[in-house]
């Protein structure tokens, strides 16, 4: 089985697309991280994570599954869940804008959004 020109071109196109998408995600506004938590496509909570003083624990129940979400200063994770795949728990903490935790069985989505920080008072020091 000889590798042909089309194979190489296809692979390069796929990898370049992946790289371009990675760069697009990395160049998202990174200040003032907000977690948007939605269940079944409906936004349930919006939590400003940057500067969060005390950790918050939230519970989401849907479709017979329960996810326990923990939010802390600048980061958020699914602490535990009773879904069969546990992908949401294995994702661990996320802290950059654009990062997402999805629990497919319970239709839970945690998405981090950032802003440019223009309208936000920055505390220096």
């Amino acid at each position: 089985m000889h590798v042909k020109k089309g194979d190489v071109i296809l692979t390069v196109i796929i990898l370049l697309t992946a790289l371009a998408l990675f760069i697009a995600f990395l160049s998202m506004p990174s200040q003032n991280i907000t977690a948007v938590i939605s269940v079944d496509g409906v936004v349930k909570n919006k939590i400003v994570l940057t500067g969060l003083k005390e950790p918050i624990t939230l519970k989401y129940k849907n479709l017979g599954y329960c996810n326990i979400v923990q939010a802390a200063n600048g980061k958020i994770c699914v602490e535990s869940a009773d879904c069969p795949t546990q992908d949401c728990v294995h994702t661990g903490w996320i802290n950059r804008a654009g990062q997402t935790i999805i629990c497919l069985p319970s239709h839970l989505i945690i998405k981090l959004e950032g802003s440019n920080g223009k309208n936000i008072d920055t505390v220096v020091g």
């Binding site: 079944d40 496509g41 997402t100 999805i102 497919l104």
Partner: peptide
């Protein structure tokens, strides 16, 4: 379609690399 959200496209770059 299941989640009625485009959030899953976040995984596209990683899945393109693992797919390769």
């Amino acid at each position: 379609l299941l989640l009625s959200s485009k959030a899953a496209f976040y995984y596209l770059p990683v899945l393109l690399i693992t797919g390769t």
